[in-house]
Amino acid sequence: MPSVNRVSMYSILAALLLLHVTVLGHISICGFKPDILLIAVVFLALFFGSGVGFEAGIAAGIGKDMLAFDYMGANTLALGLTGLAVGAIHTKFFKESRLTRAVVVFFFSAFSMLVHLFLYNMMSKSGEIGFVDYTVSPLLPVSLYSSLAAIPVFSVLEGIFGVKKPQDII
């Protein structure tokens, strides 16, 4: 398992958080924007394993929790678990394929949002949010947008972290 440069990892996560807060609103479609922090967490977990994925998820989640108006810790837990889950099964994928990466990001974006929904419904006193409503919007559009955005974001992260370039095998 290759080791990750921690300074690079935290710098990239901080920069992505900054981008997420300032720039991504401008590329939102129908109010939805791709979750680039989740994409980064999935990338790190895929290429560096569950330990790094979990660590990156926790760090990215803390950053999100600091800036969002949400139950404190919900994002940290959702992203941490996502990093852990991706890392735990990362050897099962042919991660060099762009399609596989997009599919993995789609499913783990949905997973992360479902964890968040579960936490919200558990903590909220003002009423639950229905699973079907939530799945139709925003879960599916956000996951789809994130999976599409994952293709260029993964390429950039590959360059930064010096991992193997993808093959065009679909």
Binding site: H20, V21, D35, L67, A68, D70, N75, M113, H116
Partner: peptide
């Protein structure tokens, strides 16, 4: 100057 970083809130 900034927007929510999550798609939730």
């Amino acid at each position: 100057i900034g927007r929510d970083p999550s798609n939730w809130s």
